[in-house]
C-alpha cells in the first residue's frame, strides 16, 4: 500500500518542469484522489541528537507521512509550547545547526519536506543565501513562524526565485480581509491554526476550525492544512473532514522525547503516523471536499 503510493508519487513527478513545488502539489492531489487528508508530520532536526534525525524521518515516511515539516532549532521559539521548546533546546545542545539540518533532508527520500523555523536565523544567514541553500538541499518550502507577509518581502522574492513554497499561517484572530491578503501572498498551501496560543498537544483544536477553513476556501484554491493541538487519531479525523492536510507536531516530538532508544523512537513514530494517517481517511459516505 505505502510502496504503491510512493511509486505513484514518483511517477507523477516525472516530466514536471516545476519539480520541487510540484512534489508538494502532487502530495495533496494524491491524497485528494484517495479521499483523505494528507498527513503533515513535524519533527525537530537534531532532537535529541543529530544522529537520530535521518532514521526518524524514515520512520515518518514509513508511517505514511505525505509531507514532512522539519523543525530548524532556534533559541527563542516564541510560537511554540513547552514540548517543541524543549526539543529545540535539546537539538541545539546536541550541536544541530542550519547546515546539518539542511543535510537531514535527503533521508526523507521523495516525500516533500518543508523547512520550519523562525526568521532570525534566515535573516542572519542572509535571506537570499538561506533560501537558496534550503532549495538546493531539496526542501519544497519554508515556514517562518514569526514572519507575517508585511515583513516577508525579501523572503517572498527569494522563494519565488528558487521555486519553493512560502505558506502563511491563518490564526483564529485573523479577520476576513486579512485572510484574503494571506491567501493571495501564500504559495504551496495555507496553514490554518486550529486554536489560539502556541503549539502543543495540551488543548484540542477549537470547534471554529471548520468555519475558519471554509472562510479560507472562499478566497483561495490553495490546499488548506490545519494544525496546533492535533495529537490523537480522533482529533485528526475531525479535522481531516474539512482540511486537505492535518499537521501533527508536538505529539510526535513528545514520543521522541519519551523513547529510550532510536529503535523505540522510530517504532513509536511509525506506528503513531500510521494510526493518524488512517484517521485522515474520510468515510466513504462523506462527500469529497471540493477543491
Amino acid at each position: 500500500m505505502f510502496g504503491a503510493r510512493r511509486q505513484g508519487r514518483a511517477a507523477l513527478r516525472v516530466g514536471c518542469g516545476n519539480v520541487v513545488t510540484s512534489g508538494l502539489t502532487r502530495a495533496f492531489e494524491l491524497a485528494r484522489a484517495e479521499n483523505r487528508a494528507a498527513l503533515v508530520a513535524f519533527i525537530m532536526a537534531g532532537d535529541p541528537s543529530p544522529d537520530w534525525t535521518p532514521a526518524l524521518l524514515q520512520a515518518l515516511v514509513a508511517g505514511g507521512a505525505d509531507i514532512i515539516e522539519l523543525g530548524f532549532p532556534y533559541s527563542d521559539p516564541l510560537a511554540d509550547g513547552p514540548v517543541i521548546q524543549a526539543a529545540s533546546g535539546r537539538a541545539l545542545a546536541a550541536g544541530m545547526d542550519f547546515d546539518r539540518a539542511l543535510a537531514c533532508r535527503e533521508a526523507a527520500a521523495d516525500v516533500p519536506v518543508i523547512a520550519f523555523g523562525y526568521y532570525n536565523p534566515l535573516f542572519v544567514r542572509g535571506v537570499e543565501r538561506a533560501t537558496c541553500d534550503i532549495a538546493a538541499a531539496g526542501f519544497v518550502g519554508i515556514i517562518a513562524a514569526d514572519l507575517p507577509p508585511e515583513e516577508a518581502g525579501p523572503l517572498e522574492s527569494a522563494c519565488a526565485e528558487n521555486d519553493i513554497a512560502l505558506p502563511y499561517l491563518v490564526a483564529p484572530t485573523t479577520p476576513p480581509a486579512r485572510i484574503a491578503l494571506l491567501a493571495a501572498r501564500a504559495t504551496g498551501f495555507i496553514y490554518a491554526v486550529s486554536r489560539l496560543g502556541v503549539t502543543g498537544a495540551d488543548a484540542p483544536p477549537s470547534a471554529g476550525i471548520a468555519a475558519c477553513i471554509a472562510q479560507i476556501r472562499d478566497v483561495t484554491t490553495l490546499p488548506v492544512v490545519a494544525g496546533f493541538g492535533i495529537s490523537s487519531a480522533a482529533d485528526a479525523a475531525a479535522v481531516a473532514a474539512t482540511a486537505d492536510g492535518v499537521v501533527v507536531g508536538s505529539a510526535l516530538v513528545e514520543l521522541v522525547s519519551r523513547a529510550d532508544s532510536l529503535a523505540s523512537a522510530s517504532t513509536a513514530l511509525e506506528s503513531q503516523c500510521r494510526s493518524i494517517a488512517s484517521a485522515c481517511r474520510r468515510n466513504a459516505e462523506m462527500p469529497v471536499v471540493p477543491a
Binding site: 526568521y119 514569526d146 507575517p148 508585511e150 499561517l169 490564526a171 485573523t174 491554526v193 496560543g197
Partner: peptide, 19 residues
C-alpha cells in the same frame, strides 16, 4: 509599518498581528 529608519517593525506570529 512601525519602523524607525531601518529598525522596528512587527515580526510576530500571525495570531498576534490583529491584536
Amino acid at each position: 509599518r512601525g519602523y524607525f529608519g531601518e529598525f522596528g517593525g512587527r515580526f510576530v506570529p500571525e495570531v498576534l498581528v490583529e491584536p
